[in-house]
């Protein structure tokens, strides 16, 4: 996996580069602002860009805007946005049209190294990684979507796991379910959400989008 990093705090930037080096992941460029990030992506065409939300000059949402830019112009590059905060609003902006090759995580998740590396690989490979905090915020509300309202408690749990970007196997492990029963629940989620019977991965992405967009109010 080839990646670039944009993080303005030198302590964290170096820390992440070293962490990734420990896992034999090549960091092509580590920059501290959005302009340099876009230049680095243009030059290296990496598999993944790991992007801090708050960067100079305004320290508000430079990272989110750069990520949306990268998604629009460099579709081969996945974006993994991370910050000290997760805002539902940013999640919606990042996933507005397409939930593949995108991740949005709390910085704390870096500490759980394996999950972080796993999320990075998943996003680079075309998947989704939503922070459990975002998912919890979205799930905290009763549904205003008829399809989502029909889901049982267990199915909602499964959908939340899908939104975080987990594989069937990981979901089975997390929820202490048999692999087959996870598959059954997922099929049921898809059918309740009226998702087309296309390739499974595509339907996963659609389910996540449905989940994100219908929860906005």
């Amino acid at each position: 996996m080839r990646l670039v990093i944009a993080e303005d705090n030198p302590l964290l930037r170096d820390g992440i580069v070293l962490l990734l080096a420990d896992h034999d992941i090549e960091v092509l460029a580590a920059v501290d602002n959005a302009d340099d990030l876009l230049a680095a992506v243009d030059r290296h065409r990496p598999d993944l860009a790991i992007i801090d939300v708050r960067m100079p000059p305004t320290y508000i949402d430079e990272g989110v805007r750069a990520a949306i830019d990268i998604r629009a112009h460099y579709p081969a590059t996945g974006v993994l946005v991370f910050s000290q905060w997760v805002e539902t609003e940013y999640a919606r902006q990042l996933l507005a049209e397409n939930a593949s090759k995108v991740g949005y995580l709390l910085k704390d998740r870096i500490l759980g190294t394996d999950q972080f590396i796993d999320a990075a690989r998943r996003v680079a490979a075309g998947g989704t990684a939503l922070d459990p905090d975002v998912v919890r915020q979205l799930l905290a509300r009763p549904s205003i979507d008829a399809g989502l309202a029909r889901l049982t408690g267990r199915e909602r749990e499964i959908l939340a796991q899908l939104a975080e970007g987990r594989s069937n196997q990981a979901i089975a492990l997390e929820l202490h379910l048999a692999h087959r029963s996870v598959e059954k629940h997922i099929t049921s989620v898809f059918s309740k959400l009226d998702l087309p019977a296309a390739a499974t991965d595509h339907r996963r992405v659609l389910a996540v989008l449905r989940f994100i967009n219908k929860r906005g109010g």
Binding site: Q84, K107, T113
Partner: peptide, 16 residues
């Protein structure tokens, strides 16, 4: 916050 995250990073790498 940044310092805490970087301490956590060091601990993670140490754990490995």
């Amino acid at each position: 916050q940044a310092r805490l995250v970087s301490v956590g990073l060091l601990l993670s790498r140490l754990e490995q």
